[in-house]
């Protein structure tokens, strides 16, 4: 699926940029100044802007990844201690009733549950620096249980959908910007945000569950025939 989305995002971008440039050339937009330097052509055309954006995004991606290494190391170190001490298993046991339903494929005492729980808790508290390393730890644990290593398992998808619709108790960055712009009540968005995020989580959960049920039925039918 991501193959299609990725391909079409790029193709549509190229087409739209080229189309816009051709339209401007044909409609005879007055060229600014008699002699265009190469640089200004780059800035003036959509295709030039698109190329610039593509190149600089690659640098951004590397900066994000490298910037993640330090916090990653810190949290993975802490998690290693918690795991070997058996703390993660204790956590996992506490939420067994819920996780049994959401992640039927994972043994209830598995460290994956503990890591997912920590990730969701970090997200809720708005600790995004801690949430990503903990989430990646959870993905590694889930990958160990995954029978087909290059294909997403049901549990992984369920976890990601819960994660992307993450309920945050305090959307800190939005509140900070509201305050800096002089809002009379910057934290007014807390309750509406929580309600909206809960709705997103609910719809995400049900979608994943429905698709899983549908796929299971399809698999069963194949088995009968």
């Amino acid at each position: 699926m991501l193959n299609y989305i990725w391909f079409w995002m790029i193709m549509i971008s190229l087409l739209v940029a080229a189309g816009t440039d051709i339209y401007h050339e044909v409609s005879g937009e007055p060229a600014t100044g008699g002699h265009q330097t190469e640089e200004s052509l780059n800035k003036r055309t959509k295709l030039g802007q698109l190329a610039d954006a593509a190149i600089s995004s690659a640098t951004t991606a590397v900066n994000i990844s490298i910037g993640l290494i330090g916090v990653m190391a810190l949290w993975l170190g802490i998690m290693k201690i918690a795991e070997e001490a058996g703390f993660i298993t204790i956590l996992a046991r506490l939420v067994k009733p819920v996780t049994k339903r959401l992640f039927p494929e994972i043994p209830p005492d598995h460290p994956a549950i503990g890591a997912m729980l920590m990730n969701i808790a970090a997200n809720m508290l708005g600790l995004s620096n801690a949430a990503t390393p903990l989430g990646l730890k959870a993905m590694e644990e889930l990958q160990e249980l995954n029978p087909e290593k290059d294909k997403a398992s049901n549990s992984m998808i369920m976890f990601l959908v819960i994660n992307t619709s993450a309920i945050t108790l305090i959307p800190a960055s939005a509140i900070a910007i509201r305050a800096s712009l002089g809002s009379a009540n910057p934290q007014q968005i807390i309750v509406p945000s929580i309600i909206s995020a809960s709705m997103a989580t609910l719809v995400g959960l049900s979608t994943v569950k429905l698709i899983q049920k549908f796929e299971k039925r399809k698999a069963n039918k194949k088995g009968d025939a």
């Binding site: 990725w6 816009t20 593509a54 995004s57």
Partner: peptide
């Protein structure tokens, strides 16, 4: 990269 292109192109 795909997201940056999508934004910059006007798509």
């Amino acid at each position: 990269m795909a997201i940056a292109m999508f934004r910059a192109s006007g798509a």
